[in-house]
Design a protein around this nucleic acid. Structure first.
Lengths: 216, 216
DNA sequence: GCCGATCCTTACGGATCGCTTACGTTCTTG
DNA sequence: CAAGAACGTAAGCGATCCGTAAGGATCGGC
């Protein structure tokens, strides 16, 4: 019902829409169509919306807009580390949803990762996702596999704060539920390699009580 | 008659109501009390309701709910370029009006999300939920985890008053049942950091006998 | 203008969190 | 298969933050 109305409005604005009605279908449709954006109604049968959002997040950084019943839910979600790119609380008008979709897509069109072989550059620091190499002004820096994945994930979302658990599930294998101090140690090893003064890191910043973020 | 009934129902739900009975009084009351929302009956002596609505619109973006006799009137109003945020057509129950008021206020409380991430902006003050950063005109402001959560929660619901207990349960850990003076101290620390004159706060206002609210 | 209630302010000890180091296990490579 | 690298875990330590209490200031009602 809600989905149909929103779908019609989006189509009228020229968007290509695939609507599904439960979490499982959402995941497979996601893998099939690779959408530019997901509009997610939290009132979802089957897989619950929170878990679905989390899984979508592990499949890349496709923007997600959430439809929630109450604004207090947003706080709860943020507390659970499940963030969306935007939220629309009910009751909402379909026009409002369309407006948010436009805004989020406009935002997402300016990728932090550039087009030429997935390379990211921050001042003297350069990462290349294709060759999995890192170098700074002094030359190439040898990183291990995990170290690179961790750094690349952080650097691909500059300034965004991740909890250790978030990093655990997005950088490490999905089912791995190890101790989150693992992240701490890897951050330390990374700092020792890429920071000029590891005790006072310039890029890999600690956010006390929360986690880590990469600052350009 | 209608006004009295609606007024009583709204008060019962905790709203602070000022009722007036003609257009002139409405305008001066509006300027005096700066309400969060206006419920406007179109059958109005003196200034007619359409003209009043238009004038209210020029005074800011305070939400307006209109009570109209017939649904065809709504089309006429829209044709005149006089839009409200919601409409209730007669006959209606007072409960329905209260429900609409709640819904519109909830919608209006949605923070203005700008283009660069999940940031909220109030004049010179900018919060970003993704990077958990705050800055004002002079530069970034370092906040601790709790401080940020508290400020973000308040700023995400501007003008809404929260009791200390409410803040305790929504910002702090779910099961935490600590002393509510904790909130007081955190508010103070926040003021010391984000207010130009902490003794006379511009944003983090005390509502005597109740709690705190964030004013844009 | 007084009095009680409420809020502000300050300081400090405990609790939490992150850093660091070291060591055993697993994976990779020759 | 063996050696070395990479990885995950544990424990001690230090820095940071947080909650509480107590006294002073301020507000609002009478």
């Amino acid at each position: 019902m809600v989905a149909e109305v929103v779908e019609r409005y989006l189509r009228r604005d020229g968007y290509d829409v695939h609507a599904v009605h439960d979490g499982q279908a959402a995941l497979s449709a996601f893998d099939q169509f690779r959408p530019d954006l997901v509009v997610l109604d939290l009132m979802l049968p089957g897989l619950d919306g929170i878990e679905l959002c989390r899984r979508l997040r592990t499949r890349g950084d496709t923007p997600v807009i959430m439809l929630t019943a109450r604004s207090e839910e947003i706080d709860k979600l943020l507390g659970l580390g499940v963030g969306a790119d935007d939220y629309v609380t009910k009751p909402f008008s379909p026009r409002e949803v369309v407006a948010r979709v436009k805004a989020v897509l406009r935002r997402a069109r300016q990728p932090a990762v550039s087009d030429d072989g997935e390379s990211v550059r921050f001042g003297d620091l350069r990462l290349n996702g294709r060759s999995r190499s890192v170098e700074d002004g002094r030359g190439p820096i040898p990183l291990t596999a995990r170290e690179f994945d961790l750094l690349f994930h952080l650097a691909s979302h500059p300034n965004q704060v991740f909890t250790r658990d978030q990093l655990m599930t997005s950088v490490w294998d999905y089912a791995f539920a190890g101790d989150s101090t693992t992240v701490t140690v890897h951050i330390r090893r990374l700092r020792a390699k890429i920071e000029a003064d590891p005790a006072r890191p310039r890029h890999l910043k600690t956010v006390w009580g929360v986690g880590y973020k990469f600052e350009p």
